[in-house]
Amino acid sequence: MNKIIKSYILTLALMLMSGSLLIAQNQFPSQIWHKGNIHTTDGQVYSGLVKYDLDNNLVQLQVETIATFTASNVTYFEILDDIYGGLRKFYSLPYSLNGDYETPIFFEVLTEGEEIALLCREYIATDSRNMNAWGPVGMNPFWGPQNMIGYRLAFNYYFFKDNQIQRYSMKKKDLFAMLPGHDDEISLFMRKNRLEHDKRGDLLRIAAYYNELNKN
């Protein structure tokens, strides 16, 4: 009997450890600490572990203690995100999210050139279509049935052009309106490389290509 109990406890412990590892692996970029730097408006540079919160436009620095900065006193911060895309930079720029008045908020800069820059802001969205994405869904062996909802990383995209930040509607016709003057070249580039008008990596390549076209 003791052997059976010990075996059961060991199996349970392994299952719990596996569950913990799965949860850790399924964390979103904003939920973990990254090596990085914070550049403040007074010219100081702080290095350590960095964690960001785009919903509240805050960034934290962990060295011996944790310090919190707002977008109002940060010029930009950068993180080394080994899981989701190497070196990432976030700039504090004035923008009106709710249509009232402009205030400094954080934007990630995906690519920039003389004509335009492609910016984005990430958020965590619920997704009932993908049952296996991001976090516990369906039947959990320890806590019983749960809501059939998963989570995914989503993005809002913006173009910085003519000294203004303009939100991209994610419609193909509006992409060409944002990138005027080279419709035929961009259409051919998208077809040859099988690029979509609403995917992060594809938009980055399209925006970078547009900036190259405008160098000629």
Rank of each mutant, 00 (worst) to 15 (best):
41 T>M: 10
13 A>C: 14
132 N>M: 10
133 A>R: 06
175 L>G: 04
16 L>D: 07
15 M>R: 06
113 G>S: 11
68 T>M: 07
185 E>A: 11
169 S>L: 02
113 G>M: 11
63 V>Q: 15
137 V>G: 09
139 M>R: 09
127 D>G: 03
162 D>S: 14
67 A>D: 13
96 S>G: 08
115 E>H: 12
196 E>K: 14
136 P>H: 02
116 I>L: 15
183 D>H: 08
141 P>K: 03
119 L>C: 14
99 G>H: 03
102 E>F: 03
184 D>F: 09
24 A>H: 07
73 N>H: 02
194 R>T: 10
35 K>T: 13
49 L>R: 08
30 S>E: 11
12 L>H: 08
189 F>N: 09
149 I>G: 01
202 D>R: 08
152 R>H: 05
195 L>I: 12
198 D>L: 01
176 F>I: 01
48 G>C: 08
200 R>Y: 09
151 Y>K: 12
85 G>R: 00
39 H>N: 14
137 V>M: 07
138 G>A: 12
14 L>M: 13
176 F>H: 01
200 R>G: 01
84 Y>E: 06
209 Y>L: 04
170 M>Q: 13
98 N>W: 04
41 T>V: 15
192 K>N: 14
45 V>G: 05
184 D>Q: 12
90 F>M: 10
212 E>D: 15
22 L>G: 07
110 L>D: 05
147 N>K: 11
178 M>D: 07
178 M>G: 10
144 G>A: 10
75 T>D: 13
68 T>W: 02
143 W>Q: 09
179 L>P: 04
